[in-house]
Amino acid sequence: MGNGLTVALLNGAAADADPGALRALAQVNYGHNTALQVRGVAAQGLGLHMARLRQGTAELFDAALDEAAVRGWMAQAARQAGGDCSMRVTVFARGFDHRRPLQELAVDVLVVAAAPQPPRTGALRVLARDFLRPVPHLKHVGTFPLFHHRRQAQQAGYDDALFVDGRGADARIAEGALWNIGFWDGQAVTWPQAPALRGTAERLLQAGLEAQDVAQDRRPVHMGELPAFRAAFACNANAVQPIIAIDAVEYAQAPDLMQLLADAGTHAPWEALD
């Protein structure tokens, strides 16, 4: 059980001991991260999270990630936070200079462990927005447009934003502001394919559904197809939530689908951080 404390470690040491590095992260806004729920100093899909960090470090900094050290720091932060926590691991380089972006640098790793988040269960009404995140295959720190579109959706009376690549019936559905989306036709789950960050929760659900012999389809889904589905859902590291409306298209609650997804979510084992 978590103790409610927020723990921040920079390369394994207390982050507040090196405020200059944190200022560099805030000011330069160049780096990448992964977010996960930790229970008992263990996490689901740990290999996916480490692969994400490894890929981002190689692509943004031409550097190798010391995975053993990172996992040790993650475990250290989790234990200091009481064993259960919501964790974010951010890789950046305090010496990064936008004028010389190819210079060789040592990377820094910030691990933040905060109070564990209870799963969100509320149904969502989402507004389609013509936007695709830049460099979508990386979970990078450039989150301004994500939060801006979410804010605009809430100003319009919705809960969140759904990103699509255009306007009208032919626009392809990509992802939500901080989540992936799936659809249900009563027989199979369809995962829309467009430029998007493929989340760890999405991949774990796919594996869990496959283990249950649930049919799945991965293909482009266009806005004009929305009425053909019976239900929709959002998923990320914190929750799997029903979507009951996309723009003017409304969906009924689908408790059988949500139970199916909940069962799929238990398929992946919890792996010790160290």
Score class of each variant (00 low, 15 high):
Asn3Cys: 13
Asp130Tyr: 03
Leu60Phe: 14
Arg23Pro: 00
His149Trp: 14
Ala78Gly: 10
Gly142Ser: 10
Thr90Met: 09
Ala211Asp: 04
Ala268Trp: 04
Leu273Trp: 07
Met74Gln: 08
Ala171Asp: 05
Leu132Ala: 06
Arg39Phe: 08
Leu127Glu: 11
Asn33Met: 13
Ala272Tyr: 01
Leu9Gly: 03
Tyr251Ser: 11
Val111Arg: 03
Ala252Phe: 00
Gln187Asp: 11
Ile246Asn: 04
Gly47Ile: 00
Ala248Asp: 13
Gly176Asp: 03
His98Leu: 11
Ala78Val: 10
Ala81Arg: 02
Val221Asp: 09
Ala24Glu: 01
Gly31Ile: 02
Ala252Arg: 14
Ile181Lys: 02
Leu22His: 09
His137Ile: 00
Gln216Thr: 10
Thr200Ile: 15
Val89Lys: 02
Gly95Leu: 08
Leu48Arg: 13
Pro242Gly: 07
Thr34Arg: 04
Leu261Tyr: 10
Ala215Cys: 04
Arg23Val: 11
Gly95Asp: 15
Gly166Ile: 08
Arg100Tyr: 09
Gly56Trp: 08
Val221Thr: 09
Asp263Glu: 13
Gln187His: 14
Pro255Ser: 08
Trp191Cys: 01
Ala69Arg: 15
Pro136Glu: 04
His149Arg: 07
Ala24Phe: 01
Pro119Asp: 11
Asp159Tyr: 05
Ala268Gly: 05
Ala161Trp: 07
Thr200Gln: 13
Glu250Trp: 00
Asp84Gln: 08
Arg39Ser: 12
Arg203Gln: 15
Asp159Leu: 06
Cys85Asn: 05
Gly72Met: 02
Gln76His: 14
Val109Glu: 08
Gln44Ile: 01
Ala196Glu: 03
Glu271His: 12
Leu36Ile: 10
Met50His: 01
Leu209Asn: 09
His222Ile: 03
Gly157Ile: 07
Asp130Thr: 03
Glu59Cys: 02
Leu102Trp: 13
Val70Met: 07
Asn33Trp: 13
Val38His: 08
Val38Cys: 09
Gly45Trp: 06
Asp130Glu: 09
Ala231Arg: 08
Gly82Arg: 07
Arg133Cys: 01
Asp84Ala: 14
Ala228Met: 07
Arg79Tyr: 00
Arg167Val: 07
Phe147Tyr: 10
Ala128Asn: 02
Pro136His: 04
Ala239Pro: 06
Gln103Ala: 15
Gly186Thr: 11
Val109Tyr: 06
Leu209Gln: 09
Asp66Ser: 09
Leu10Thr: 04
Arg52Ala: 12
Phe233Thr: 05
Ala114Tyr: 02
Ile173Met: 03
Leu65Asp: 10
Ala196Gly: 01
Arg218Leu: 12
Pro242Leu: 12
Gln76Trp: 01
Leu102Cys: 06
Pro220Tyr: 06
Gly31Lys: 02
Trp184Asp: 01
Leu9Ala: 06
Met223Ala: 12
Asp217Pro: 00
Asp97Thr: 09
Asn238Arg: 11
Asn11Asp: 15
Pro255Asn: 09
Arg125Ile: 04
Gln155Val: 05
Gly2Lys: 06
Val221Leu: 13
Gln253Ala: 14
Gln212Glu: 09
Pro118His: 08
Ala245Met: 02
Gly20Lys: 11
Arg218Ser: 11
Ala156Gly: 06
Arg23Gly: 01
Ala93Thr: 06
Glu104Ala: 15
Leu146Ala: 12
Leu178Phe: 13
Gly224Ser: 08
Ala81Leu: 03
Leu5His: 12
Arg125Val: 03
